[in-house]
């Protein structure tokens, strides 16, 4: 079973977000980058499926050289080889197109990724890749069981979940509890150094959007504390000040 897992290289979930150059560039200063948490679930499930069924896990990132430590971490977690498309991931269509073009070069039974990245939170790339490849796409997928040429998946829907039966190959945007995050062990970290990491150039430069400027939200005003014995005051504030009830 051949699985392609698409990995984002994103600021750690605890990062303070700031911008530079007149709010046109993300400020990387002091920011630690990680495998996107949703992608990390996808990767963990891919490694489990490989361990159970045999095959190979390839991880893919569209990014500049700075993302290689993130790809190495994915190799340490259990991927067999990595591909980096050497380009800044500036637009979701651009990224989806690179993924689809890489996918066409291999025979993948599954193309997995997180349901969304945690930088732009678009959650659109899985659908785009599916359409570009003419394959079904599903998201958010919280259970993925493969049996031969078909799979049983569970998708989260508002207020519940639905179960589906689908044939391979397909594209899935993953989220917990599809698998537990895997922490690389020493052996994984050692072997990751020698696993192949191939760099390829982008195939197409089409973009559908352009970033004009970033903005930070207005700072929050001070909290109004209310005495626990005076809940009526809270009710009064919600009704007459906030006007939300």
């Amino acid at each position: 079973m051949n699985i392609l897992v698409c990995i984002t290289h994103v600021p750690d979930t605890t990062s303070r977000i700031a911008f530079t150059e007149n709010n046109t560039k993300f400020d990387k200063n002091g920011v630690q980058f990680i495998i996107g948490p949703y992608d990390d679930y996808a990767l963990a499930r891919a490694v489990e499926l490989k361990e159970a069924n045999g095959g190979k896990v390839t991880v893919l990132n569209v990014g500049k050289a700075e993302t290689e430590p993130t790809l190495r971490k994915a190799l340490a977690i259990g991927a067999d080889e990595a591909i980096r498309v050497n380009a800044f991931p500036s637009d979701s269509y651009f990224v989806a197109k690179q993924i689809a073009d890489v996918a066409k070069q291999g025979e993948y039974d599954l193309i997995l990724m997180g349901r969304e990245s945690i930088d732009f939170n678009g959650g659109m790339v899985h659908g785009m890749v599916g359409e570009l490849l003419g394959l079904p796409s599903f998201s958010p997928v919280m259970v993925l069981e493969v049996e031969g040429n078909s799979a049983k998946i569970t998708r989260e829907i508002e207020g519940g979940k639905e179960k589906l039966e689908v044939n391979l190959p397909f594209v899935a945007g993953c989220q917990e509890p599809i698998a537990e995050w895997k922490i690389p062990n020493m052996r994984g970290i050692m072997s990751a150094r020698t696993k192949p990491l191939n760099v390829v150039e982008p195939t197409d430069n089409t973009k559908l959007t352009e970033i004009a400027q970033y903005e930070l939200p207005a700072p929050k005003g001070a909290v109004k504390m209310i005495d626990a014995d005076n809940v009526e005051e809270l009710v009064n504030l919600l009704k007459n000040e906030a006007k939300v009830i």
Binding site: S92, Y93, E116, G122, G123, H126, M128, E131, L132, G173
Partner: peptide
């Protein structure tokens, strides 16, 4: 969310979420 990415590609339409 699952549907709009596909429409974006079908019609070459830019997508903002």
């Amino acid at each position: 969310d699952a549907v709009v990415g596909r429409i974006s590609v079908k019609l070459g339409a830019a997508l903002a979420s």
